[in-house]
Design a protein around this nucleic acid. Structure first.
Length: 731
RNA sequence: GCGCGGUUAGCUCAGUUGGUAGAGCGCGUCAUUGACGUUGACGAUGUCGGGGGUUCGAAUCCCUCACCGCGCACCA
């Protein structure tokens, strides 16, 4: 039976033309929705489930190669599991990314219109942000499709949509009622640039050179102190020394009144173990309101906590030489005053880590403020009196949750051990508004505003990671008892970058253990950072980023996917270059030509033709390779699996088998011809299936071009789409 | 200061229970008008960061040192 060769196969493979058409076809098939798969009979109704909730990209812009890697890894597992008959669900979504999005829009407005958010007002500002977020969302959703992601768009979610708002408010109330969320006047990380508090994890330390000044408050003060921030010293209430420092024991307990740069101070000498004898003079000026450890000391010693710097990082005390000055100007004034008074004993250059805000770059001013916190150390009766800290530690420690690669477990525990209460309130407008209302002395917490007049809602919003922390179950319908929640939770895998292990992964475990008493996911697959060919992080400012859309346009998404996966072990950073991507574009064309050759040179054969011993050996070798690939996927070794299928197809199948076949196929031994024709067709079919999770587009296209065959044969029949065709091998 | 990674060919990186070193790109020689615009064959290049140990045998396990990257803490 002579087959007609599809005309398309005679030209080189054209990924751009193919990919958008194929994605549309997949979407119309409905097969990315597990319910449709069951309905259409491609998945058994009682099949085991496999679920991933997509880490929602921030609606701050467009996707970069890091997102492309994340989508590729998840899509490979999802497609693999779907092809293995699992009831497979991958939920897509986006994140409102509160601070990041608001500051992006604020910057744009400042640049274009010269206005601040306060000029616009809360309502108008939010309207502007929502327009931006919507546009950004649309771009992202289209990019996710371009990458070939087989996610279920009918279940798409957004961290700020209505069902998620219900989840957030329900959780807030539950934690408030359990005494885990509290409001407290505490020293927090204040970002003067973003005009908001931030959590400890949103701080980035920058190493800088700084000057350490050593001086006395006044001529008759007995002890010299050292500081890099003389301007804060107008807020000092004590000098702390180590209890066993003989130089100072005689002064402990004494109190002094001094006038420091025009500001009267009352200084008590205290002893505290937190002071290091060997640093500076071994004596520390205690500034409770503007230093975290000083605040803690002041709590221990019952000291006053006067604030001398405001939210705009300006001085609030002193004469006209100080009052209203920015902190670094005030520093100069005070240093000059110390020099004039002859109080400055020493200035020395020193290394300093300056705390800056991750999103805005603003220098953090520790300030005492009234904020909302989550208590991570309070025993929870309904969880066997375990604390949130213990709840988030346990499932990783006892292996219920597996981290890949496992050495990140240590980093995880180390972080938990240093964890303090989580500050969750933010003074920004975009985000989940805190569901607390006030009327005089009354406080109300609930899903909706309380009945009655004169209630005012708390002006703050929640840290964006609060809503993200509920992600695995809020996306499945919680707090409602949905069928999805029952079927797909706990999810099977969380695939994300190691840089958000603390921000996100840990907090998801915390919230899920607390609210549901279970784990959010069974496995955490951590990918590394995607870098450019020189090893630099891709970033807008460096201009070295590669846009996944450009790659799709130039080389096809299949090629981009392979370039990201091959050689990228879990947890390790990877480098991608256009050369590498180009190599996999060539590979797509190679398979295209392999198919062309087989369909033109070995088109006639019977499926029952006996295989020669040699061909049987070739087939066994392929089967071994396929089982190996299967095993590697099961073991999360995608870099090995993708490399094997690539080398098998190019070096073994094309360069050896096909080359050797030429004389056989054009020879006169019909038995050998039949055997070889059958072998080539069989391996081609099976290898297209095995390659599909990695390069879904070109394989789906080729699958449709293969001649039809009986369903009973290994490798399936191609009347059905490849994406729901059964995987041929077990590990 | 504590912890976690890394160090393998010119470049970028694999190497899953220890068994005489691998890939891609690049480089060299030859072939090929071809199933392949994007081909094939052959080849060169490594004391697997240094030192020590365990072992019949170490890139792989242990100790130690050096350098690079990262996290946490300190940051008066």
């Amino acid at each position: 039976m002579e087959k007609d060769i599809p005309a398309k196969l005679l030209a080189p493979y054209n990924p751009t033309e193919t990919e958008s058409r194929i994605y549309k076809m997949w979407e119309e098939s409905g097969f990315f929705n597990p319910d449709v798969c069951v309905e259409k009979g491609v998945t058994a109704p009682d099949a085991p489930t496999y679920s991933i909730v997509m880490p929602p990209p921030n609606v701050t812009g467009v996707l970069h190669m890091g997102h492309a890697l994340m989508l590729t890894v998840q899509d490979i597992f999802i497609r693999y599991k779907r092809m293995n008959g699992f009831r497979t669900l991958w939920i897509p979504g986006t994140d409102h990314a509160a601070i990041a999005t608001q500051s992006k829009v604020e910057k744009d407005i400042q640049k274009k219109e010269g206005k601040t958010r306060h000029d616009l007002g809360r309502e108008e500002m939010l309207r502007r942000i929502e327009i931006f977020a919507q546009e950004s969302h649309d771009a992202i959703a289209s990019q996710i499709r371009v990458m070939g992601s087989s996610c279920d768009w009918t279940r798409e979610t957004f961290t700020l949509d209505e069902p998620r708002t219900l989840a957030v408010r329900t959780m807030f109330k539950k934690m408030y009622d359990d005494g885990l969320i509290y409001r407290g006047h505490r020293i927090v990380n204040w970002d003067p640039k973003g005009q908001t508090t931030i959590s400890d994890d949103e701080i980035v330390y920058e190493a800088r050179k700084s000057v350490l000044y050593t001086f006395k408050y006044s001529k008759d003060f007995p002890i010299a102190i050292s500081t890099t921030r003389p301007e804060t010293k107008v807020g000092d209430v004590a000098v702390a020394v180590h209890p066993e420092d003989e130089r100072y024991t005689q002064y402990i307990g004494k109190e002094y009144d001094v006038v420091f740069c025009g500001v009267p101070l009352h200084i008590k000498i205290i002893a505290d173990n937190a002071v290091e004898k060997d640093f500076g003079t071994g004596a520390l000026g205690v500034t409770p309101a503007h230093s975290i450890i000083d605040w803690e000391m002041s709590e221990r010693h019952n000291l006053p906590q006067p604030q001398v710097i405001n939210e705009y990082a300006k001085m609030t005390v002193g004469g006209e030489d100080l009052l209203g000055k920015k902190v670094n100007e005030a520093r100069e004034v005070i240093v000059q005053w110390l020099r004039n008074e002859g109080l400055l004993e020493n200035e020395k250059e020193t290394d300093q880590n300056v705390a800056t805000a991750e999103r805005t770059g603003g220098i953090i001013e520790p300030l005492p403020k009234l904020q909302w916190f989550i208590n991570v150390n309070k025993p929870i009766p309904e969880r066997n009196n375990k604390t949130l800290k213990e709840l988030m530690r346990a499932p990783v420690a006892d292996g219920q949750i597996k981290i890949i690669p496992d050495y990140f477990g240590k980093t995880y525990f180390h972080w938990i051990d240093n964890l303090k209460d989580w500050c969750i309130s933010r003074q920004i407008w975009y985000g989940h508004r805190i569901p607390v209302w006030y009327r005089g002395d009354e406080i109300y917490t609930g899903i909706n505003a309380p009945e009655g007049a004169d209630w005012t809602q708390d002006a703050d919003t929640l840290d964006t990671w609060f809503s993200s922390a509920l992600w695995t179950f809020s996306t499945l319908g919680w707090p409602n008892n949905t069928k999805d929640l029952e079927l797909y939770h706990p999810t099977d895998m969380l695939e994300t970058g190691y840089e958000i292990l603390f921000f996100w992964v840990a907090r998801m475990i915390l919230m899920t253990e607390y609210a549901l008493g279970t784990i959010p996911f069974k496995n955490i697959y951590l990918h590394g950072t995607v870098r450019d060919s020189k090893g630099q992080k891709m970033s807008k400012s460096l201009g070295n980023g590669i846009d996944p859309l450009d790659i799709a346009e130039k080389y096809g998404s299949d090629a981009g996917r392979m370039a990201l996966i091959v050689g990228t072990a879990p947890g390790t950073d990877s480098k991608v270059s256009e050369d590498k991507i180009k190599g996999y574009k060539n590979f797509a064309n190679k398979i295209w030509n392999i198919t062309r050759f087989i369909l033109t040179s070995a088109p006639t054969y019977t499926d029952t033709a006996p295989l020669t011993d040699l061909d049987q050996a070739h087939y066994s070798a392929w089967q071994d390779t396929a089982r190996d690939i299967t095993k590697n996927i099961e073991n999360y070794q995608l870099h090995l699996a993708s490399d094997s299928i690539y080398h098998y197809l190019w070096d073994t199948f094309a360069s050896t088998l096909i080359e050797d076949s030429k004389p056989i196929l054009s020879g006169t031994d019909t038995a050998a011809q039949q055997s070889r024709a059958r072998l080539l067709n069989q391996i081609l079919r099976e290898s297209i299936i095995v390659l599909h999770p990695f390069m879904p587009f070109v394989t789906e296209e080729l699958w449709a071009l293969l001649p039809a065959r009986p369903e009973s044969l290994s490798g399936g029949n191609n009347k059905q789409l490849l994406c729901v065709t059964r995987w041929p091998y077990q590990a």
